[in-house]
Design a protein around this nucleic acid. Sequence first.
DNA 1: GTCTATACACCGATAGAC
DNA 2: GTCTATCGGTGTATAGAC
Lengths: 193, 193
Amino acid sequence: MATKRRLGSESSATRSALMDAVEAVMREDGYGALTARSVAERAGLKHQLVYYYFQTLDDLLIAAYERHIAGYLARIEEALAGERPLHAFWSVHANPVNATLNMEFLSLANHNEAIRERTVSFGEHVRRLGLARLEALIRRPAPGMEAITPFAVTMAITSIGSVLGLESAIGISGGHAETRAMIEWCIDQLEPG
Amino acid sequence: MATKRRLGSESSATRSALMDAVEAVMREDGYGALTARSVAERAGLKHQLVYYYFQTLDDLLIAAYERHIAGYLARIEEALAGERPLHAFWSVHANPVNATLNMEFLSLANHNEAIRERTVSFGEHVRRLGLARLEALIRRPAPGMEAITPFAVTMAITSIGSVLGLESAIGISGGHAETRAMIEWCIDQLEPG
DNA sequence: GTCTATACACCGATAGAC
DNA sequence: GTCTATCGGTGTATAGAC
């Protein structure tokens, strides 16, 4: 387990550049293309540098993932703190720039235990945050509409936002405006302003 | 392009076994683990057999993908032909068994041009099928609910079904029953029975 | 902190025996 | 139709010079 190889500082700019390169390779060529060589080349470094900053390639991957979800968490927290949290929550998820990267990590979670664990606990954490903020909002459903719960609404928002993002990444855009319009109509009903 | 290497029959049982093995490897270890050796070993064959039945590994992948989407298309067509097409359409997408495999192929579509092209045209085809059948159903929205269009509804169903399936694959199940209940309530409104 | 050099395993693909 | 043998290339990881 514990190798004797020396490791570089965690605050190094080169270390960050390697994590940037992980994201770039995953976006462009997929997680299957992640190798010490591809990552280092993208960062303009020799592949052996990966092993100066990280014990294994997996450790680099985990570090990149933790940085990625920390950024996502910050965006969610900011959205939920505003005066129209549901609209802001949708805005975060309607942004397609991270959809491809998110899916690569989610796909990876199916096959990498360390990524899977972090994905599950992060997902539960985000959901708790959303529920705490949105329960006050969707607390009194109209009679006959009890099925519309905060959880189900946040699930719908995150799911539809992700799939719209993925589709635009591969070149499908037909009907997206229509779908966005329906979602926005729905959340306008729940959170009028 | 055209190699001189001889190829086995397309009706061979061994050829099918190789395609089965592609699906098994993708489900269990992800597309990144797909190699001629891993696929052949899963099928109980030598890795060189891959190159007797397919010109390249990519050709095997494309054949497996085409067989996979043909099965999905058959399920969709059967669902839409019934007497409650919207409910049946949801049943197909609420089934989580293919969620992981679907995502692996979708992730692959981001980085493999042949898979991407097939995914885009297949997605558009399914959507046309759904719209033709559902427009008669959701053709007269109640006043003030014009935003609920057949397209947006099918998009919501496919998106939420996929994400529920992915989450259960990695071990998240909290709130899923609640989400399913909301979807079922919604489609009951659109297609009463 | 970054480099060269090197280990050993596994990759896709081909040739040709049986 | 399936096998053995083999090719050049690339993978992770390490040791040690500078």
